[in-house]
Design a protein around this nucleic acid. Structure first.
Length: 582
RNA sequence: CGGGGCGUAGCGCAGUCUGGUAGCGCGCACGGUUCGGGACCGUGAAGUCGAAGGUUCAAAUCCUUUCGCCCCGACCA
């Protein structure tokens, strides 16, 4: 491809609005342009990257026996109503009516439609397993599109669905995807982790996410270096470091220190938050209990975490179902005390959920009396609670499996896999007859990958101050040929010859044939980030040499044009085998 | 949904507080000199100041409404 003919609008400046590094670089290097919030135009370079990512996706999906299909983006409400998601999902779904007034929606994922298809076409256990996938546009009316291409309202997704006649079959399909995903992300040159995850709106039991480590990521993952435990913080168990019971519990005691007067009430005028009371009483936040009143479906619930902990709403939601926080008036009405001085004691048979960190020891908490807190409150003595891990895991907490300190990293979710079970097949009557002639629901899995997120994550993980450094397998081109001082016809001719030989050898090359100064070409080449450059300049050429430059290391080898072509040809074919990732 | 910020030339921004000739850089066009890390000189084209309404002799600037975009949070009693 000739750069002079291509739409690659590189710019020197980028709006201060762009925050994520991948976003800035994609704008600057002429990969994307924004149409509206969460809607992006992929220019030729970006689209080539997407094409290459999708090629890898297709190869790996095909290799596990999945079959590509194409599904409507515009869908009738009916199937969504049958599974209940028509009402479960709220503003996130784009809805519309057709001219006949029928409710329709734009597909945000395709469980309903895939399952509907399966319900019509699969009747016997003999027809399974089946795996169907598509690479198509999904639409979600995101509350807050952000970070360029990372969270958009319209995006490409590779989604596949497995249909099995047994749980073992599902597990095989799941494993096949798991392994394929590892190959995909490795080939894409990403550093990633597979973590345990929440099933969210998908339903089902087992789920994993594939996470590319990046500051721009919206998720946090818990990693244990010693036993390999890896989990999204949304579900990660963790044991808060216990060095907080201070002074240490006496032998056989319950953690109450000797200078701790059980039940003592202390005047804490207008000190409501943990931070305020902690400073006022000169006690560390870990010595407090934090009580949070919530309104769940079955009535009020009091959630208790340690003063230094954060309540994790998603964890709690798994215990008590959907809930909201109580407002000030409700707190007064239900607990008879104003916010800020709530304690877990004496609330009759109200449901209390407490984090296990509070099982041992005694703590300071609200006295259920305005402007007073109480010392020495002990679980089991002063109140009874159901114990559930409801706190947010933090760096330095201990691994729930092996007890070593865990690390927390921000990450971009680039893929997910769900064991759905029969949620959708039951709802949509996707049944089959088994060996015994018995009717059973198809057992399903669903598996997603966001190609744009792969691209963005690759940039997040591979760039320097000058621009992008694409992993070889997903770069828009394999090589950029850069003729310098184009006035000299020999230079131009030599560059052209190299470019043509590369093309003939199956190496995808871009040639910067623009009539521009060397500096501009070098800057643009580094920005655009094609991993290898061949620089053809007058002086070197007189000695029969060109420069072969590695974008990442900036290492330059002077070789003859023939050698350059040979090396590049070799490099590409060997790079296809391995990606070079985590 | 809540909070904050920003809409001025194709792009990036200043000007708004304190009303009075719309500016800078990049880019673009033309001419010349240059030509291995975003060259230089000269000339030039290009703006309904997001939109609507209002105040005023006079509005990019003040007031009201509205649309769009970005960021933070979705609350921790």
């Amino acid at each position: 491809m000739r750069l002079s003919k291509m739409l690659v609008p590189t710019v020197r400046e980028v709006p201060s609005e762009a925050v994520a590094e991948s976003h800035k670089l994609m704008l600057r290097a002429g990969y994307v342009r924004q149409l509206a919030a969460g809607l992006y135009i992929y220019l030729p370079l970006a689209w080539r990257v997407m094409t290459r990512i999708n090629r890898i996706l297709r190869e790996e999906m095909d290799s596990i026996g999945a079959q590509e299909v194409s599904m409507p983006v515009l869908q009738p409400a009916e199937q969504w109503q049958q599974t209940g998601r028509w009402s479960d999902i709220k503003e996130e779904m784009f809805r519309l009516k057709d001219r006949g007034g029928r409710d329709m929606c734009l597909g945000m994922t395709h469980e309903e439609i895939m399952t509907w298809l399966a319900s019509r076409e699969i009747r016997s256990y003999k027809q399974m397993p089946q795996m169907w996938y598509q690479i198509q546009t999904k639409l979600r009316d995101e509350a807050r599109p952000k970070s360029g291409i990372l969270r958009t309202r319209e995006f490409l997704m590779k989604d596949s669905y497995s249909f099995d006649s047994s749980v073992e079959g599902l597990q095989r399909s799941y494993k096949l995807h798991e392994d394929a995903y590892h190959r995909i992300f490795t080939r894409c040159g990403l550093k990633f982790y597979q973590v345990e995850s929440d099933t969210g709106m998908m339903g089902g039991s087992v789920a994993h996410e594939f996470m590319a480590v990046s500051e721009a990521g919206e998720d946090e993952i818990v990693l244990c270096a010693s036993c390999g435990y890896q989990s999204n913080v949304e579900i990660a168990g963790s044991v808060p470091s216990s060095a907080v019971i201070d002074p240490p519990a006496p032998e056989g005691g319950n953690g109450i220190g000797e200078n701790e007067k059980t039940g003592e009430e202390v005047h804490t005028p207008d000190k409501r938050t943990i931070e305020e009371v902690s400073r006022f009483l000169k006690e560390r936040p870990e010595r407090f209990m934090k009580s949070i009143l919530l309104i769940a479906g079955d009535g009020p619930v009091l959630a208790i975490v340690r003063g230094d902990q954060q309540l994790h709403e998603k964890k709690l939601q798994r215990v008590i179902g959907p809930f909201r926080t109580a407002n000030k008036q409700e707190i007064k009405d239900i607990l008879g005390v104003e916010a800020g001085f709530i304690g877990p004691m004496g609330h009759g048979d109200m449901s209390i959920i407490a984090d296990p960190a509070l099982r041992v020891g005694s703590y300071i908490t609200g006295a259920n009396k305005p402007h007073y807190h109480r010392r020495g409150v002990t679980a089991g003595v002063d109140f009874k609670a159901a114990w559930h891990d409801i706190h947010v895991a933090r760096e330095g907490d201990l691994c729930p499996k092996c007890g070593s300190p865990v690390k927390i990293e921000k990450a971009i979710e680039i893929g997910n896999i769900f064991q759905l079970g029969t949620k959708y097949s039951q709802a949509l009557h996707a049944f089959f007859l088994d060996e015994a002639g018995e009717e059973k629901p198809i057992i399903m899995g669903s598996y997603g990958i966001g190609p744009a997120r792969i691209a963005a994550a690759a940039i997040e993980q591979n760039h320097d101050k000058d621009g992008i450094i694409w992993p070889g397998n997903i770069a828009p081109f394999d090589v950029e040929v850069i003729p310098i001082s184009a006035d000299e016809p020999e230079v131009e001719a030599a560059a052209r010859r190299i470019y043509e030989e590369l093309a003939a050898a199956g190496v995808e090359a871009l040639i910067d044939d623009r009539d521009l100064r060397a500096g501009v070409k070098f800057k643009d080449a580094d920005l655009i980030g094609i991993p290898r450059q061949v620089i053809v300049g007058g002086r070197n050429l007189k000695e029969g040499l060109v420069e072969l430059k590695d974008r990442r290391t900036r290492e330059i080898r002077k070789v003859s044009p023939q050698e350059a072509v040979a090396i590049l040809k070799e490099g590409i074919s060997s790079a296809c085998e391995s990606g070079g990732g985590a």
